[in-house]
Design a binder for these strands. Structure first.
Length: 667
DNA sequence: CAGACGAGGAAA
DNA sequence: TTCCTCGTCTGT
């Protein structure tokens, strides 16, 4: 029996009191120390499990419902091995809550009573017929053929923003529904699901089962059970939906495949997109990766014919791609827009002019600035001190009424005197932030109805939904936002996008910086001109010659990806090589560093491998924890190597070791 | 010397 | 993860 605890091995129990020996996958309650825990009968005892020593305790009770499907068990084993995490810890994610199996009787009765209703409404619901373009139709036919074949295939659905990728995979979804198969759709963020669910309901006439971390325990339990019973046919969710117990999964979709938020960075570290591919392989079913700007890894795999490629190159319903123009901020002559007191605006004169024209035409404007708060720094005019977070090695962000740490959430009131030189009234808010931009907009366009969309101004999915609705109903003329607004939304009357600082994210030593900036700006640009009116994008930049900017203006995504690809190849980075990171962290800086030095002494033979470190992580303190890291680069996977390295080493107390397979960000 | 507190280990 | 034990520290 594997228990949902971070323990690597299985425990044996006496099943002689049962009529028949419980089969693998059976959910059982067993005594464990003083507690009674729910666990799962595992098909084979992992080699690491020592033989039981004394007499076995009997199983308390057997769960009467369905067994965990063998495909899920294989998947859990696989993820545990790949991420070098104890199986029990992965099982815990799959069972997702300890209270899952409590007082099941009343709940089950309720479930049974509601089943015929939902089944009937599904059958009677009207499916909206849709007309697809020839492009879309061809792609949809190919997908449907894959659903019929029910064999493992990775399909990249590559379509420019607004080309109607969703309608295309909805066709595949319909086919899966008709075949009585379950489908899983992974979306990068919950914020996106509202519009998605609306579209789904319009198309199919019933609601999909939702899965994300905001669900209440009761709703989670209901969803989990209906999935295990095979009753839930379409499940839409975030990363964690990957571990749901589907008995008849027929297809998987990863929408916005390139999105960095598929990478889980805390607890069990894994990449949702990659694990989704593994799950599809285990089930022997097709998986669709959808994106307008595929990740370099996926693009590369498609070029190597490891993935099938379906392309949608035209925007839907006659809409054309937006025109992207660069504004070179180095030219002083264009920075003539002045605010109160003669201060220069964040908005350049060409952008200012475009905004006024667009507002006059009663069309909508989006201003994008990927920086939360009022100003990224609070500086002392006298001594140059910037106020840092007391727990992290980053400066505090000025949110006007208070200072906030974007790493750990620490809040503090804005001091009146400099903490370093104690001079009074010398602190200034330095640099651009969306809240400052909102102030400027209010001054420059006093008659425009504006809204600010940032995770600080909107709490919870209800307020996001409300704002999205207001924008769709054209109650907003000018929208200001951080990357929250970049993704997936469809605003037909939006024709102008202004990017305030296109260079953000390009500085720093992160090898993925260019790719990420390109994705983000492409997505933002894609918000404009999604209907009849042509869209315009004005991109303010201090480095207009940068390959990212040039590729955006030329609309040449594939050239950009190829160039980026060459760079990665030259350095042996993914997808041409494999990385693993080993992170040491602890409260005591000196202990963590010492542990790093110890490990460096213990390195086993490298064999075609490079190991860098120990080096302090770029953000070397987070939440008061000091972090050092090793980076392992190889053409092979490094699990065996890491296992050998760590075996026999006892980690000093107070120091934690984390393994990040295929690290994504280098902070 | 009783009680508080924290670290470490075991759980079948 | 939880809970028990054992060693160390604290105050009477």
């Amino acid at each position: 029996v594997i228990l949902p605890l971070p323990l690597p091995h299985a425990f044996s129990y006496d099943a002689s009191a049962q009529e028949t020996c419980p089969e693998p996958g059976t959910i059982v309650q067993v005594p464990f120390g003083k507690q009674a825990l729910w666990g799962v009968v595992w098909p084979s005892n992992p080699a690491s499990s020592p033989a039981p020593t004394s007499t076995l305790k009997p199983i308390h009770q057997v769960y009467e419902g369905e067994k965990l499907p063998p495909t899920l068990i294989s998947f859990i084993d696989w993820v545990a091995r790949y991420t070098m995490t104890p199986v029990g810890k992965i099982l815990k994610m799959a069972l997702h809550t300890k209270a899952l199996l409590r007082d099941k009787k009343p709940k089950r009765q309720k479930k049974l009573a509601s089943l015929p209703d939902s089944e009937q409404s599904r059958r009677e619901a009207q499916r909206q017929s849709v007309t697809l373009s020839p492009d879309q139709d061809a792609a949809a036919e190919a997908l449907k053929a894959s659903i019929d074949a029910q064999k493992f295939d990775v399909i990249l659905l590559d379509g420019v923003t607004g080309s109607g990728k969703t309608e295309v995979y909805f066709e595949a979804l319909e086919r899966a529904l008709d075949q009585g198969l379950q489908s899983l759709i992974l979306l990068p963020e919950i914020a996106l699901t509202t519009q998605w669910i609306q579209r789904f309901q319009d198309r199919f006439g019933f609601s999909p089962t939702q899965w994300h971390s905001d669900l209440t325990p009761a709703r989670k339990e209901e969803a989990w059970r209906s999935i295990l019973q095979g009753e839930a046919r379409v499940v839409v969710g975030a990363r964690s939906a990957l571990f749901l117990p589907f008995p008849r999964l027929g297809m998987v979709v990863v929408d916005e495949e390139h999105d960095p938020s598929f990478k889980q960075e805390e607890g069990v570290i894994y990449h949702g997109r990659d694990m989704a591919i593994v799950r599809a392989r285990i089930h022997g079913i097709p998986i669709i990766l959808a994106s307008a700007t595929p990740s370099l890894e996926t693009f590369h795999n498609a070029q190597q014919d490891r993935y099938k490629l379906l392309k949608l190159s035209n925007r839907h319903a006659g809409a054309s791609l937006p025109l992207i123009q660069l504004i070179d901020l180095r030219q002083e002559a264009i920075n003539t827009v002045r605010l109160q007191g003669g201060k220069k605006s964040l908005i350049s004169s060409p952008l200012h002019q475009a905004i006024e024209e667009t507002l006059e035409k009663k069309q909508q404007v989006l201003l994008f600035l990927n920086r939360r708060g009022f100003a990224p720094l609070t500086l002392c005019k006298k001594c140059g001190h910037r106020i840092p977070c007391p727990y992290c090695s980053v400066p505090l962000v000025d949110h006007r009424h208070r200072l906030l740490c974007h790493q750990c959430g620490h809040k503090s009131p804005k001091p009146t005197a400099c903490p370093q030189c104690h001079e009074e009234d010398c602190l200034i808010s330095w640099g651009p932030g969306v809240e400052r931009l909102a102030d400027e907009v209010a001054y420059l366009y006093p008659h425009a109805r504006t809204a600010l969309m940032s995770s600080d101004t909107l709490s919870g999915s209800a307020s996001i939904r409300q704002l999205i609705q207001q924008i769709q109903d054209r109650e907003i003329d000018l929208l200001i936002g951080t990357q929250m607004i970049a993704k997936g939304y469809h605003f037909p009357s939006l024709t102008l996008v202004g990017v305030i600082d296109g260079d953000l994210g390009l500085s720093g030593g992160d090898p993925r910086a260019s790719e990420r900036t390109f994705h983000l700006l492409s997505q933002v640009a894609g918000r404009s001109g999604r209907a009849q009116e042509k869209g315009h994008v004005l991109l303010q930049s201090h480095m207009p010659d940068h390959p990212v900017m040039q590729a955006l203006v030329a609309g040449n995504r594939d050239l950009f990806l190829s160039l980026e690809s060459q760079e990665r190849q030259a350095y042996g980075l993914p997808p041409y090589g494999r990385l693993a990171a080993l992170i040491l962290s602890g409260k005591n800086a000196w202990e963590v560093e010492g542990a790093g030095r110890q490990l460096a002494q213990l390195l086993p033979p490298l064999e075609e491998r490079e190991v860098w470190g120990p080096a302090p992580a770029p953000l070397h303190v987070i939440r008061g924890r000091h972090r050092w890291r090793f980076l392992i680069k190889s053409t092979q996977s490094s699990q065996g190597f890491i296992h050998q390295w760590l075996s026999g080493w006892s980690c000093p107390k107070g120091v934690q070791v984390q393994i990040d397979m295929d690290p994504y960000n280098f902070l």
